[in-house]
């Protein structure tokens, strides 16, 4: 039986009080709860404080470039779809540098869970605005406050009919564990945008700021995440109340892997062993005569 010990990793380099610690713990607990062995799991991360997460637990890891989390995760999943693939990104990483990949991963509906550490600020480069920074948020680069409108990832994902869209909060760890597990179990592309305080650089959206606003969508049992109109409404709540939970899901969309002929029977990495048959290749030459 897999336990938390199996997922134990090395020392971290995050600031004290960082939301990443709870996120790391939530990922470990979610995977243990799902009964996944570390060798069955591949974490693909980008660059930023979020990108370091895979180094702090034990599992297969491809720590990619800034913004380039989803493409290698997509390639790896297509090459071996038996792997449980999680893409770990930050808000700048995924919604800024990697924004195009985010859009197209939703279109592909590949069975990957994307966890975005969304602290609304750049941590590794020390405090610049991120795509999700609130308008008016002042930094050394934006001393008079951000004048751009924030990117709303859950609204954008729902608008693109992403098959699973959720928002979590590191201050609600057990709830977050549940969301990650639902996302991993979901067949298709799953976004878990995780609100996470950055005690070093975001003095606006603090732990207390989030804590007084977030509420759980699934409490009360009335919210239907397959209702897209309701999802649009929930996805736009922000200033005074912020919903967490599964905001939108469309279980009817087929996954990318289900539609690819080459992997209908076995993962590509298994069927590729041995190389192509020589006599078949020789027959192929006839097409050029």
């Amino acid at each position: 039986m897999v336990t938390l010990k199996d997922y134990a990793g090395g020392p971290t380099a995050w600031c004290p009080g960082c939301g990443n610690f709870m996120l790391l713990r939530a990922v470990q607990e979610a995977l243990v709860g799902l009964g996944k062995e570390p060798h069955e799991v591949l974490l693909v991360s980008g660059i930023g404080q979020a990108g370091k997460l895979p180094h702090y637990l034990r599992c297969n890891t491809f720590n990619s470039l800034h913004g380039r989390t989803l493409p290698p995760a997509t390639g790896a999943k297509l090459a071996n779809h038996e792997l449980t693939v999680l893409a770990i990104a930050g808000d700048g990483d995924c919604y800024g540098e990697g924004g195009n990949h985010f859009i197209h991963a939703i279109r592909r509906n590949i069975d990957i869970t994307l966890i975005v550490h969304d602290n609304q600020v750049y941590g590794l480069t020390k405090g610049q605005a991120s795509p999700t920074s609130d308008t008016g948020f002042a930094t050394k680069i934006q001393p008079e406050g951000v004048i751009l409108a924030p990117f709303n990832p859950v609204l954008a994902a729902a608008a693109m009919d992403a098959s699973f869209v959720a928002r979590g909060f590191t201050g609600e760890k057990d709830h977050l564990v549940g969301l990650i597990q639902k996302a991993v179990r979901h067949k298709g592309f799953a976004l878990v945008d995780v609100l996470q305080p950055c005690p070093s650089f975001n003095k606006l959206n603090t732990f207390a700021w989030y804590k007084e606003r977030v509420y759980k969508l699934d409490e009360g049992g009335k919210y239907d995440p397959t209702d897209r109109v309701a999802a649009f409404q929930k996805a736009q709540e922000w200033d005074s109340k912020i919903p967490i939970g599964v905001i939108y899901t469309n279980p009817k969309r087929p996954t990318m892997e289900e539609q690819i002929h080459a992997i209908r029977e076995a993962p590509l990495v298994k069927s590729a062993a041995g190389g192509p048959d020589r006599s078949r290749l020789e027959r192929l030459l006839e097409e050029f005569i």
Partner: peptide
């Protein structure tokens, strides 16, 4: 980078 991911997976 997609091709690199596929290659990493084998």
């Amino acid at each position: 980078t997609m091709a690199i991911g596929a290659s990493f997976a084998g």
